[in-house]
């Protein structure tokens, strides 16, 4: 479970996040929606421990990201919106490096790398340098590296951007599998119709403030998520 309790983040006088408060339960696919600059990436980076925040608390499965960052990070995987990986490593070296960081045993990493490389159709590119990859290929490598250590919480910033249709399908499939195992998927997106179909819960943020949070049905009612979002934005 992710518990976000009154999180406030400031950049000088500018308030990027103001009193954000919501929970993400085990087995949830949670969409985090907002226009550009609303504060989505700031909150995501705060959850994964990349950013510090000024007030409030974030708990990952009961552990504070501020007090126990290493323990929290071990349970999470993060995929940034623009995966800037290590260009001088091959895809296999990078995935292996990430597995080393999460101290994954050889057998598990072999099984996972094979499984996900096949799923994302990059098994023939694992020995290529990341520097030669397109944005979409880098995104796939980042996804495999994240999934290879069996995270309990998967946090993604705009995961579908740059992916080909097969990879998008694979991501959806992985999300489904993880949710069945009671794991958490938390991601930000602008693709509202996909979010509407995939997600069990949703939060909408506007200018750093949470404007709506709840189950998909509660938020959209008989309307569509896009309509609700546009109404809130206006």
């Amino acid at each position: 479970m992710i518990e976000i309790k009154n999180v406030t983040k400031k950049y000088g006088d500018n308030i990027a996040l103001k009193n954000i408060y919501f929970n993400v339960n085990d087995g949830d696919i949670f969409a985090f929606i907002g226009h550009n600059g609303a504060g989505k990436t700031t909150l995501i980076k705060s959850i994964v421990g990349i950013h510090d925040f000024d007030e409030g608390e974030i708990l990952i499965n009961g552990k504070s990201i501020k007090k126990n960052p290493i323990e929290c990070k071990k349970e999470m995987a993060f995929i940034p919106d623009n995966p800037e990986l290590y260009d001088n490593m091959t895809a296999a070296e990078f995935i292996n490096f990430m597995c080393d960081m999460y101290e994954i045993d050889e057998n598990t990493r072999k099984v996972n790398i094979e499984k996900y490389a096949k799923m994302f159709e990059i098994e023939n590119s694992l020995n290529y340098l990341i520097g030669s990859f397109s944005h979409g290929m880098k995104q796939k490598v980042a996804l495999i590296a994240a999934l290879s250590h069996n995270p309990k919480v998967l946090i993604m910033d705009e995961p579908f951007v740059g992916l080909d249709p097969i990879a998008v399908h694979a991501v959806k499939q992985v999300m489904g599998e993880m949710v069945k195992e009671g794991k958490i998927i938390f991601y930000s997106t602008h693709i509202l119709d996909v979010a509407e179909k995939l997600c069990s819960r949703v939060a909408i943020i506007k200018k750093g403030e949470l404007v709506k949070v709840g189950s998909m049905d509660e938020i959209k009612g008989d309307s569509s998520l896009e309509k609700v979002f546009l109404e809130l934005e206006n």
Binding site: M89, F97, C99, D100, E103, E106, N124, L126, N127, Y128
Partner: peptide, 29 residues
């Protein structure tokens, strides 16, 4: 231009301690 002729070779999986993996990564960089 980046050499692309070794993509199909089988990749190696080697386990390292995080500290060792970080030093290797730095040396490679």
């Amino acid at each position: 231009r980046i050499q692309k002729n070794n993509g199909k070779k089988s990749y190696k999986v080697r386990c390292n301690k995080p500290q060792v993996a970080l030093v290797k990564k730095e040396l490679k960089k």
